[in-house]
Amino acid sequence: MRVLGLMSGTSHDGIDSAVVDWSPDGDVLTGVVEHTGTRPYEGRLRERIAGALPPGPAGMAEVCRLDTLIGQAFADAAEACGPVDLVCSHGQTMFHWVEDGRVRGTLQLGQPAWIAERTGVPVVSDLRARDVAAGGQGAPLVSYFDLLLLDGLPGPSGALNLGGIANLTVRDARTAYDTGPASALMDAAVSAATGAPYDEDGRLAASGEVHEGLLADLLAEPYYRAPPPKSTGKELFHPGYLAERASPYRPALPDLLATLAALTAETVAAEIRRHRLETVVVSGGGARNPVLMSMLAARAGDARIVPSDELGVPADAKEAIAFSLLGWLTAHGLPATVPGCTGASGPRVLGAITPGAGALRLPEPLGEGPRRLRFTAAAEAGGAGAAG
Protein backbone atom coordinates (compact mmCIF):
# COMPACT_ATOMS: atom_id res chain seq x y z
CA MET A 1 0.00 0.00 0.00
CA ARG A 2 1.49 3.31 -1.13
CA VAL A 3 0.85 5.95 1.53
CA LEU A 4 1.76 9.62 1.28
CA GLY A 5 2.68 11.26 4.58
CA LEU A 6 2.37 15.04 4.76
CA MET A 7 3.77 17.01 7.67
CA SER A 8 4.38 20.63 8.64
CA GLY A 9 5.99 21.05 12.03
CA THR A 10 6.46 23.84 14.53
CA SER A 11 8.91 25.62 12.22
CA HIS A 12 5.92 26.22 9.86
CA ASP A 13 8.26 26.76 6.93
CA GLY A 14 6.70 24.30 4.51
CA ILE A 15 5.19 20.88 3.90
CA ASP A 16 7.37 17.78 4.06
CA SER A 17 6.19 14.82 2.00
CA ALA A 18 7.10 11.14 1.81
CA VAL A 19 5.61 8.35 -0.29
CA VAL A 20 6.29 4.94 1.22
CA ASP A 21 5.17 1.59 -0.17
CA TRP A 22 4.45 -0.55 2.91
CA SER A 23 4.46 -4.36 2.77
CA PRO A 24 3.76 -6.55 5.83
CA ASP A 25 5.44 -9.92 6.24
CA GLY A 26 4.68 -11.50 9.59
CA ASP A 27 5.80 -9.12 12.31
CA VAL A 28 8.08 -7.15 9.97
CA LEU A 29 6.81 -4.18 7.98
CA THR A 30 8.98 -3.24 5.03
CA GLY A 31 8.92 0.28 3.68
CA VAL A 32 10.19 1.35 0.28
CA VAL A 33 10.70 5.12 0.39
CA GLU A 34 9.80 6.15 -3.14
CA HIS A 35 9.73 9.92 -2.71
CA THR A 36 10.66 12.60 -0.19
CA GLY A 37 10.48 16.34 -0.63
CA THR A 38 9.59 19.72 0.84
CA ARG A 39 7.24 22.32 -0.57
CA PRO A 40 7.78 25.72 1.08
CA TYR A 41 4.73 27.69 2.10
CA GLU A 42 4.04 30.69 -0.10
CA GLY A 43 5.48 33.74 1.67
CA ARG A 44 2.19 35.46 2.48
CA LEU A 45 0.66 32.26 3.84
CA ARG A 46 3.66 31.66 6.09
CA GLU A 47 3.30 35.22 7.41
CA ARG A 48 -0.39 34.62 8.18
CA ILE A 49 0.39 31.36 9.97
CA ALA A 50 3.07 33.10 12.04
CA GLY A 51 0.71 35.95 12.82
CA ALA A 52 -2.01 33.60 14.06
CA LEU A 53 0.27 31.56 16.31
CA PRO A 54 0.34 32.40 20.05
CA PRO A 55 0.45 34.99 21.38
CA GLY A 56 -0.89 36.66 18.21
CA PRO A 57 -4.65 37.26 18.00
CA ALA A 58 -6.66 35.27 15.46
CA GLY A 59 -10.42 35.56 15.09
CA MET A 60 -12.62 32.79 13.77
CA ALA A 61 -12.65 34.35 10.30
CA GLU A 62 -8.86 34.00 10.09
CA VAL A 63 -9.01 30.45 11.48
CA CYS A 64 -11.50 29.54 8.72
CA ARG A 65 -9.34 31.15 6.03
CA LEU A 66 -6.18 29.44 7.28
CA ASP A 67 -7.93 26.06 7.46
CA THR A 68 -8.81 26.44 3.79
CA LEU A 69 -5.52 27.95 2.60
CA ILE A 70 -3.39 25.39 4.44
CA GLY A 71 -5.64 22.60 3.15
CA GLN A 72 -5.16 23.86 -0.39
CA ALA A 73 -1.38 24.09 0.12
CA PHE A 74 -1.35 20.48 1.36
CA ALA A 75 -3.45 19.49 -1.67
CA ASP A 76 -0.88 21.12 -3.96
CA ALA A 77 1.90 19.18 -2.21
CA ALA A 78 -0.04 15.92 -2.46
CA GLU A 79 -0.79 16.37 -6.16
CA ALA A 80 2.89 16.93 -6.90
CA CYS A 81 3.78 13.55 -5.36
CA GLY A 82 1.89 11.48 -7.92
CA PRO A 83 -0.67 8.69 -7.46
CA VAL A 84 -0.94 6.90 -4.10
CA ASP A 85 -3.47 4.68 -2.33
CA LEU A 86 -3.86 6.81 0.80
CA VAL A 87 -2.79 10.19 2.19
CA CYS A 88 -2.04 10.83 5.83
CA SER A 89 -1.96 14.56 6.56
CA HIS A 90 -0.78 15.96 9.87
CA GLY A 91 -1.79 19.50 8.94
CA GLN A 92 -0.34 22.54 10.69
CA THR A 93 -0.46 22.75 14.47
CA MET A 94 -1.81 26.15 15.45
CA PHE A 95 -2.47 25.64 19.15
CA HIS A 96 -1.56 23.01 21.74
CA TRP A 97 -3.63 23.65 24.87
CA VAL A 98 -1.62 22.71 27.96
CA GLU A 99 -2.63 23.50 31.55
CA ASP A 100 -0.68 22.30 34.59
CA GLY A 101 1.16 19.79 32.42
CA ARG A 102 -2.04 18.25 31.03
CA VAL A 103 -3.01 18.61 27.38
CA ARG A 104 -6.66 19.59 27.17
CA GLY A 105 -6.86 20.06 23.41
CA THR A 106 -4.84 20.46 20.26
CA LEU A 107 -5.65 22.11 16.94
CA GLN A 108 -4.19 21.30 13.54
CA LEU A 109 -5.48 23.23 10.52
CA GLY A 110 -5.47 22.12 6.88
CA GLN A 111 -8.92 20.94 5.77
CA PRO A 112 -8.41 17.39 4.40
CA ALA A 113 -11.36 17.64 1.99
CA TRP A 114 -9.18 19.72 -0.33
CA ILE A 115 -6.62 16.89 -0.46
CA ALA A 116 -9.31 14.24 -1.05
CA GLU A 117 -10.89 16.27 -3.85
CA ARG A 118 -7.55 16.85 -5.54
CA THR A 119 -6.18 13.30 -5.27
CA GLY A 120 -9.33 11.20 -5.26
CA VAL A 121 -7.99 8.96 -2.48
CA PRO A 122 -8.92 8.72 1.22
CA VAL A 123 -7.18 11.06 3.65
CA VAL A 124 -6.36 10.29 7.28
CA SER A 125 -6.11 13.48 9.34
CA ASP A 126 -6.59 14.96 12.83
CA LEU A 127 -4.33 12.30 14.33
CA ARG A 128 -3.52 13.88 17.68
CA ALA A 129 -7.03 14.45 19.03
CA ARG A 130 -7.85 10.82 19.86
CA ASP A 131 -4.75 10.41 22.02
CA VAL A 132 -5.58 13.64 23.86
CA ALA A 133 -9.15 12.44 24.44
CA ALA A 134 -7.68 9.27 25.98
CA GLY A 135 -5.69 11.37 28.45
CA GLY A 136 -2.49 11.59 26.44
CA GLN A 137 -0.30 14.49 25.40
CA GLY A 138 -1.05 13.92 21.71
CA ALA A 139 2.72 14.09 21.23
CA PRO A 140 5.19 12.95 20.23
CA LEU A 141 3.21 10.66 17.92
CA VAL A 142 6.40 9.67 16.11
CA SER A 143 7.32 7.62 19.20
CA TYR A 144 5.52 4.55 17.76
CA PHE A 145 7.68 4.80 14.64
CA ASP A 146 10.80 5.49 16.70
CA LEU A 147 10.42 2.38 18.87
CA LEU A 148 10.10 0.16 15.80
CA LEU A 149 13.05 1.88 14.13
CA LEU A 150 15.28 1.51 17.20
CA ASP A 151 14.52 -2.18 17.68
CA GLY A 152 17.66 -4.27 17.35
CA LEU A 153 20.18 -1.51 18.02
CA PRO A 154 22.75 -2.55 20.62
CA GLY A 155 22.70 -0.95 24.07
CA PRO A 156 20.38 1.77 25.38
CA SER A 157 19.19 3.85 22.43
CA GLY A 158 16.98 6.79 21.64
CA ALA A 159 15.60 8.77 18.72
CA LEU A 160 15.86 12.55 18.70
CA ASN A 161 14.01 14.87 16.35
CA LEU A 162 15.23 18.46 16.11
CA GLY A 163 12.46 20.50 14.51
CA GLY A 164 11.01 23.69 15.96
CA ILE A 165 10.64 21.69 19.17
CA ALA A 166 12.95 18.81 20.13
CA ASN A 167 11.48 15.46 21.11
CA LEU A 168 13.20 12.34 22.40
CA THR A 169 12.04 8.71 22.35
CA VAL A 170 13.82 6.33 24.73
CA ARG A 171 13.54 2.71 23.62
CA ASP A 172 14.23 0.75 26.80
CA ALA A 173 12.16 3.01 29.05
CA ARG A 174 9.42 3.14 26.38
CA THR A 175 8.94 6.81 27.03
CA ALA A 176 8.94 9.90 24.81
CA TYR A 177 8.49 13.62 25.36
CA ASP A 178 9.34 17.10 24.13
CA THR A 179 12.59 18.23 25.72
CA GLY A 180 12.13 21.92 24.80
CA PRO A 181 12.92 24.18 21.85
CA ALA A 182 15.17 23.02 19.03
CA SER A 183 15.10 25.68 16.30
CA ALA A 184 11.98 27.59 17.42
CA LEU A 185 13.79 30.30 19.37
CA MET A 186 16.76 30.45 16.99
CA ASP A 187 14.43 30.94 14.02
CA ALA A 188 12.49 33.61 15.93
CA ALA A 189 15.70 35.52 16.66
CA VAL A 190 16.89 35.41 13.04
CA SER A 191 13.48 36.39 11.67
CA ALA A 192 13.16 39.35 14.03
CA ALA A 193 16.65 40.66 13.24
CA THR A 194 17.02 39.93 9.53
CA GLY A 195 13.71 38.72 8.09
CA ALA A 196 15.36 35.46 7.04
CA PRO A 197 13.58 32.26 8.14
CA TYR A 198 16.61 30.64 9.80
CA ASP A 199 20.38 30.74 10.32
CA GLU A 200 21.57 28.83 7.25
CA ASP A 201 24.19 26.22 8.17
CA GLY A 202 24.51 27.88 11.58
CA ARG A 203 26.84 30.51 10.13
CA LEU A 204 25.76 33.35 12.42
CA ALA A 205 25.84 31.14 15.51
CA ALA A 206 29.33 29.94 14.54
CA SER A 207 30.61 33.52 14.68
CA GLY A 208 29.15 34.20 18.12
CA GLU A 209 29.96 33.30 21.70
CA VAL A 210 27.67 31.78 24.32
CA HIS A 211 26.41 34.34 26.82
CA GLU A 212 26.58 32.36 30.06
CA GLY A 213 24.31 34.69 32.05
CA LEU A 214 21.53 34.56 29.48
CA LEU A 215 21.97 30.80 29.12
CA ALA A 216 21.57 30.34 32.88
CA ASP A 217 18.36 32.37 32.86
CA LEU A 218 16.98 30.39 29.92
CA LEU A 219 17.81 27.09 31.62
CA ALA A 220 15.80 28.19 34.67
CA GLU A 221 12.58 27.60 32.67
CA PRO A 222 10.39 25.24 34.81
CA TYR A 223 9.36 23.13 31.80
CA TYR A 224 12.77 21.45 31.69
CA ARG A 225 12.32 20.05 35.20
CA ALA A 226 8.75 18.80 34.67
CA PRO A 227 8.51 14.99 34.54
CA PRO A 228 7.36 13.21 31.37
CA PRO A 229 5.05 12.61 29.69
CA LYS A 230 5.05 16.23 28.61
CA SER A 231 4.74 18.27 25.44
CA THR A 232 5.17 21.89 24.49
CA GLY A 233 5.21 24.26 21.54
CA LYS A 234 5.17 27.88 20.52
CA GLU A 235 2.45 28.54 23.07
CA LEU A 236 5.40 28.73 25.49
CA PHE A 237 8.52 29.16 23.35
CA HIS A 238 7.42 32.09 21.18
CA PRO A 239 9.21 35.29 20.06
CA GLY A 240 7.84 37.29 23.00
CA TYR A 241 9.21 34.72 25.44
CA LEU A 242 12.67 35.14 23.92
CA ALA A 243 12.50 38.95 23.77
CA GLU A 244 11.55 39.19 27.44
CA ARG A 245 14.46 37.03 28.57
CA ALA A 246 17.09 38.40 26.22
CA SER A 247 16.32 42.12 26.56
CA PRO A 248 18.24 42.68 29.84
CA TYR A 249 21.41 41.35 28.18
CA ARG A 250 21.07 42.96 24.72
CA PRO A 251 23.27 40.33 23.03
CA ALA A 252 24.47 40.74 19.46
CA LEU A 253 22.63 38.40 17.08
CA PRO A 254 25.54 35.92 16.65
CA ASP A 255 25.95 35.68 20.43
CA LEU A 256 22.20 35.22 20.90
CA LEU A 257 22.12 32.41 18.35
CA ALA A 258 25.17 30.70 19.87
CA THR A 259 23.45 30.89 23.27
CA LEU A 260 20.18 29.47 21.93
CA ALA A 261 22.06 26.63 20.23
CA ALA A 262 23.71 25.91 23.59
CA LEU A 263 20.27 25.95 25.25
CA THR A 264 18.95 23.30 22.87
CA ALA A 265 22.14 21.22 23.13
CA GLU A 266 22.17 21.30 26.93
CA THR A 267 18.46 20.54 27.46
CA VAL A 268 18.64 17.61 25.02
CA ALA A 269 21.98 16.33 26.31
CA ALA A 270 20.74 16.40 29.90
CA GLU A 271 18.05 13.88 28.93
CA ILE A 272 20.51 11.75 26.95
CA ARG A 273 22.77 11.62 30.01
CA ARG A 274 19.87 10.93 32.35
CA HIS A 275 18.83 7.87 30.35
CA ARG A 276 22.48 6.84 29.82
CA LEU A 277 21.89 6.40 26.12
CA GLU A 278 24.67 4.87 24.06
CA THR A 279 23.18 5.58 20.63
CA VAL A 280 20.99 8.51 19.61
CA VAL A 281 19.47 8.53 16.12
CA VAL A 282 18.95 12.16 15.07
CA SER A 283 16.59 13.65 12.48
CA GLY A 284 14.95 16.96 11.65
CA GLY A 285 16.26 20.25 10.30
CA GLY A 286 18.44 20.80 13.36
CA ALA A 287 20.46 17.74 12.42
CA ARG A 288 21.86 19.84 9.53
CA ASN A 289 23.04 22.64 11.84
CA PRO A 290 26.75 21.93 12.46
CA VAL A 291 26.99 24.32 15.42
CA LEU A 292 24.07 22.70 17.23
CA MET A 293 25.30 19.19 16.48
CA SER A 294 28.83 20.00 17.66
CA MET A 295 27.50 21.43 20.93
CA LEU A 296 25.24 18.42 21.40
CA ALA A 297 28.06 15.93 20.83
CA ALA A 298 30.24 17.79 23.34
CA ARG A 299 27.54 17.60 26.02
CA ALA A 300 26.09 14.13 25.39
CA GLY A 301 28.74 12.15 27.25
CA ASP A 302 29.69 8.91 25.55
CA ALA A 303 26.55 8.70 23.43
CA ARG A 304 27.08 8.02 19.74
CA ILE A 305 25.11 10.54 17.66
CA VAL A 306 24.10 9.16 14.27
CA PRO A 307 21.80 10.58 11.58
CA SER A 308 18.65 8.58 10.84
CA ASP A 309 19.91 8.31 7.23
CA GLU A 310 22.15 5.47 8.45
CA LEU A 311 19.00 3.47 9.23
CA GLY A 312 17.48 4.15 5.81
CA VAL A 313 15.36 7.11 6.91
CA PRO A 314 16.31 10.52 5.43
CA ALA A 315 16.77 12.90 8.36
CA ASP A 316 14.83 15.71 6.68
CA ALA A 317 11.83 13.46 5.99
CA LYS A 318 11.59 11.25 9.07
CA GLU A 319 8.39 12.79 10.40
CA ALA A 320 6.68 12.62 7.00
CA ILE A 321 7.70 8.95 6.76
CA ALA A 322 6.41 8.38 10.29
CA PHE A 323 3.03 9.87 9.39
CA SER A 324 2.91 7.66 6.32
CA LEU A 325 3.22 4.74 8.74
CA LEU A 326 0.50 6.15 11.01
CA GLY A 327 -1.83 6.38 8.00
CA TRP A 328 -1.08 2.76 7.07
CA LEU A 329 -1.85 1.66 10.62
CA THR A 330 -5.16 3.54 10.72
CA ALA A 331 -6.21 2.10 7.35
CA HIS A 332 -5.58 -1.40 8.75
CA GLY A 333 -7.45 -0.73 12.01
CA LEU A 334 -4.31 -0.77 14.15
CA PRO A 335 -3.44 1.48 17.09
CA ALA A 336 -0.50 3.83 16.60
CA THR A 337 0.22 5.12 20.08
CA VAL A 338 2.30 3.86 22.99
CA PRO A 339 0.68 4.81 26.31
CA GLY A 340 4.03 5.11 28.09
CA CYS A 341 5.13 7.66 25.50
CA THR A 342 2.08 9.92 25.36
CA GLY A 343 0.51 9.23 28.76
CA ALA A 344 -2.80 8.02 27.29
CA SER A 345 -4.89 5.43 29.11
CA GLY A 346 -4.30 2.92 26.31
CA PRO A 347 -3.30 2.51 22.66
CA ARG A 348 -5.67 4.07 20.15
CA VAL A 349 -6.39 3.93 16.43
CA LEU A 350 -5.74 7.50 15.32
CA GLY A 351 -7.39 10.03 13.09
CA ALA A 352 -10.48 10.66 11.02
CA ILE A 353 -10.86 9.44 7.44
CA THR A 354 -12.15 11.64 4.61
CA PRO A 355 -13.25 9.45 1.67
CA GLY A 356 -11.78 9.99 -1.78
CA ALA A 357 -13.66 9.61 -5.04
CA GLY A 358 -16.32 6.89 -5.02
CA ALA A 359 -16.99 4.39 -2.25
CA LEU A 360 -14.60 4.22 0.70
CA ARG A 361 -12.61 0.99 0.50
CA LEU A 362 -10.01 0.10 3.10
CA PRO A 363 -7.84 -3.01 3.53
CA GLU A 364 -8.96 -5.89 5.72
CA PRO A 365 -8.15 -5.11 9.36
CA LEU A 366 -5.04 -6.80 10.76
CA GLY A 367 -4.95 -8.56 14.11
CA GLU A 368 -1.78 -6.95 15.38
CA GLY A 369 0.76 -4.37 14.33
CA PRO A 370 4.36 -4.83 13.23
CA ARG A 371 7.17 -5.41 15.71
CA ARG A 372 9.96 -4.23 13.44
CA LEU A 373 10.52 -1.89 10.51
CA ARG A 374 12.80 -2.57 7.59
CA PHE A 375 13.57 -0.03 4.90
CA THR A 376 14.57 -1.12 1.41
CA ALA A 377 15.88 1.08 -1.37
CA ALA A 378 13.47 1.48 -4.26
CA ALA A 379 16.02 0.01 -6.69
CA GLU A 380 16.53 -3.04 -4.46
CA ALA A 381 12.78 -3.59 -4.31
CA GLY A 382 12.39 -3.22 -8.04
CA GLY A 383 10.55 0.09 -7.56
CA ALA A 384 7.45 -1.56 -6.15
CA GLY A 385 6.23 -3.41 -3.09
CA ALA A 386 3.35 -5.71 -2.33
CA ALA A 387 0.03 -4.16 -1.37
CA GLY A 388 -0.58 -4.06 2.34
Rank of each mutant, 00 (worst) to 15 (best):
residue 161 N to H: 13
residue 111 Q to A: 14
residue 261 A to F: 01
residue 345 S to G: 15
residue 130 R to V: 13
residue 315 A to R: 08
residue 10 T to H: 06
residue 190 V to W: 09
residue 314 P to S: 10
residue 240 G to Y: 08
residue 259 T to A: 07
residue 139 A to C: 08
residue 51 G to H: 10
residue 32 V to I: 14
residue 119 T to G: 08
residue 59 G to T: 07
residue 328 W to G: 07
residue 48 R to T: 03
residue 287 A to G: 13
residue 44 R to W: 09
residue 64 C to V: 13
residue 218 L to D: 14
residue 44 R to M: 04
residue 168 L to D: 07
residue 197 P to K: 05
residue 383 G to M: 08
residue 298 A to Y: 01
residue 5 G to F: 12
residue 382 G to A: 12
residue 119 T to L: 13
residue 56 G to W: 02
residue 104 R to M: 11
residue 311 L to M: 14
residue 267 T to N: 05
residue 7 M to L: 13
residue 357 A to P: 03
residue 93 T to L: 09
residue 281 V to T: 05
residue 220 A to V: 01
residue 275 H to L: 00
residue 364 E to T: 14
residue 374 R to D: 03
residue 14 G to V: 04
residue 331 A to I: 10
residue 371 R to L: 14
residue 28 V to H: 04
residue 53 L to T: 09
residue 92 Q to K: 06
residue 37 G to H: 12
residue 267 T to Q: 13
residue 47 E to K: 05
residue 242 L to C: 06
residue 122 P to R: 12
residue 268 V to N: 04
residue 241 Y to M: 01
residue 195 G to R: 12
residue 44 R to D: 12
residue 112 P to I: 09
residue 312 G to A: 13
residue 292 L to D: 01
residue 284 G to L: 08
residue 30 T to Q: 09
residue 381 A to H: 01
residue 185 L to W: 12
residue 322 A to K: 01
residue 91 G to F: 06
residue 344 A to I: 02
residue 159 A to K: 01
residue 142 V to D: 01
residue 91 G to R: 03
residue 97 W to P: 04
residue 169 T to H: 05
residue 185 L to S: 09
residue 369 G to C: 05
residue 376 T to Q: 12
residue 59 G to N: 09
residue 344 A to F: 11
residue 176 A to E: 03
residue 78 A to K: 10
residue 149 L to T: 10
residue 150 L to G: 11
residue 86 L to E: 08
residue 284 G to T: 10
residue 92 Q to I: 12
residue 96 H to P: 09
residue 47 E to P: 05
residue 322 A to C: 06
residue 133 A to Y: 12
residue 104 R to K: 11
residue 335 P to W: 08
residue 172 D to M: 00
residue 18 A to Q: 11
residue 103 V to T: 15
residue 254 P to I: 07
residue 119 T to F: 00
residue 372 R to I: 00
residue 218 L to Q: 03
residue 79 E to R: 14
residue 87 V to D: 05
residue 378 A to F: 00
residue 273 R to D: 02
residue 198 Y to V: 05
residue 289 N to P: 08
residue 294 S to D: 10
residue 319 E to N: 05
residue 381 A to L: 06
residue 174 R to N: 01
residue 319 E to V: 01
residue 179 T to A: 08
residue 347 P to F: 08
residue 86 L to F: 14
residue 34 E to K: 12
residue 234 K to M: 07
residue 253 L to S: 09
residue 224 Y to H: 15
residue 209 E to R: 15
residue 286 G to S: 08
residue 318 K to F: 09
residue 220 A to W: 00
residue 102 R to F: 13
residue 254 P to F: 03
residue 211 H to T: 12
residue 348 R to K: 13
residue 359 A to E: 14
residue 266 E to C: 05
residue 247 S to N: 06
residue 276 R to E: 12
residue 97 W to D: 15
residue 299 R to F: 00
residue 327 G to W: 13
residue 8 S to Q: 10
residue 149 L to V: 10
residue 298 A to E: 14
residue 110 G to S: 13
residue 320 A to F: 05
residue 117 E to I: 00
residue 169 T to Y: 07
residue 140 P to V: 11
residue 224 Y to L: 14
residue 41 Y to C: 03
residue 27 D to F: 06
residue 106 T to R: 07
residue 349 V to W: 02
residue 40 P to N: 04
residue 266 E to Q: 15
residue 157 S to G: 10
residue 246 A to I: 11
residue 292 L to I: 02
residue 209 E to L: 11
residue 181 P to R: 02
residue 306 V to M: 10
residue 21 D to L: 02
residue 340 G to Y: 08
residue 71 G to N: 06
residue 226 A to V: 05
